[in-house]
Design a protein around this nucleic acid. Structure first.
Lengths: 247, 247
DNA sequence: CGAGGTCTTGACCTCCCTCAAGCCTTGTGG
DNA sequence: CCACAAGGCTTGAGGGAGGTCAAGACCTCG
């Protein structure tokens, strides 16, 4: 049936979705190798993005959806008067640009926090591809839906939590995502500055710094610049689910 | 071609999507009358929901998507330790439950703030319907995408704005949505309590009350219990786009 | 008409912000 | 390879926006 897909041309081995180490996290999830081959044909792989580069800007017309292949991105929204809010940090295997499907314009900007590579799914291919791969439609629904759930979680964090809880939740979230990607869940490099962490969490950079110091003094984590080690993960979890202000 | 759809049975006149006053806001947007007829056949209209009733609960398996037909809903997420965050207030024509498509479980709870009616789109019909009405797939993408953009806007509000700005943004948002539905944009009833407003905006109810009083003292609005009149809409807009804390 | 929920207002307090100073890290050009 | 600049981080001191606690007024609905 799909035997022609069992042999992948050597020269594509390194880039094809079907051979990508992220295929279980990224767009191809749940596709047959037949379907994945179709996907491979429409996706432009391994486009490099330099640190600091803007992949797309809020307001730009939607050209493509982007999957992070390597590296780290942040997405930001900006209010009329210029206030910026970081809405997410994005790791390999995560899709960016879903918020643009509504108006065919990006609602946020994506900026590389380090040298990155992205895979590109042209918007024009989206409708035809959805027709030929019904599972993809469904998968995109799921991804968008998960994005909504994620955002709602952040709303809870911003609306209800104190500084220490926010930072603990942030670290645990990073830890969990690192481990999903096969990295250590206990120690990792932060790719973003204190200011960016603070912006994301609705705090000032000084508060982030102070809270890191406090967590370290409590023996819960160990911080050295951008290197973080989660010493007592359970204690971190206890921080977010203990609620002193609750009756 | 679709002449059978030009005549709508009398007994359905009041309930069919094709005759609904919200059809330009709700799911049917952009559908042909042919397509709308198909939609009409799968949607259960006018299911009543009593004030205080829970339409669906976070964690419930996804049965249907719901469109508000009349009345007002809130959706809430709850953290493990019981903290609640209101993630949105929902007016006629708005769809609820999109966040459940990811895991086939609801990620938030929907509670009626007054006696309501909802229209119900069974989840099982979603895939087949998407096949027969390609425009619907696209429309659902757009709705979900818009939800993401909306949530990002709230993140900006929660992360960056002071109490007065949050409340001004909240009132302007309500005003704009009321006017889209043909109601006055200058005065309306708040269907939610001060506590619910505060929870949504990341403030305490006392702060909401105080801020209402201050805005009234400044002559920008007039509040009498749940009745609000926006006296100086431009002044309200100026509040959110003036940023004293910005350099 | 009374009870319970809702709203307002005051007084006080706390958590986080602001401002400031100094240190550390990183990268660049002499 | 070092010097220096610039950005990033830490820490302290003080202040302010909003939270907390409390009391009383005002709905509204059985």
């Amino acid at each position: 049936m799909n035997d022609q897909n069992d042999i992948i041309p050597i020269h594509r081995l390194k880039t094809a979705c079907s051979a990508c180490s992220l295929r279980e996290l990224c767009l191809p999830v749940g596709l047959t190798s037949d379907e994945m081959a179709k996907l491979d044909q429409t996706i432009r792989q391994r486009r490099p993005v330099k640190r600091g580069d803007v992949l797309f800007r809020s307001g730009d017309p939607l050209v493509s959806l982007y999957a992070v292949r390597t590296g780290f991105f942040k997405t930001t929204v900006v209010s009329e008067d210029g206030r910026e809010q970081i809405t997410g940090f994005h790791m390999p295997g995560e899709l960016m640009g879903l918020d643009a499907l509504g108006q065919n314009r990006h609602g946020c900007s994506a900026i590389a926090l380090e040298d990155c590579e992205v895979c590109e799914l042209p918007e024009q291919q989206l409708a035809p591809l959805s027709q030929t791969i019904p599972a993809l439609t469904n998968h995109l629904y799921k991804l968008m839906s998960r994005e909504i759930v994620r955002d709602q979680g952040i709303m809870l964090l911003l609306g209800n939590m104190r500084a220490e809880e926010r930072l603990a939740a942030f670290l645990l979230n990073l830890s969990q995502r690192m481990s999903t990607r096969g990295f250590s869940s206990k120690s990792f490099h932060l790719r973003m500055t204190r200011e960016e962490i603070g912006n994301y969490l609705g705090l000032k950079l000084e508060t982030v710094s102070r809270t890191f110091s406090k967590l370290q003094a409590d023996g819960v984590i160990h911080v050295q610049g951008k290197l973080v080690e989660l010493v007592e993960i359970d204690a971190l979890k206890r921080i977010i689910s203990s609620c002193p202000g609750l009756h």
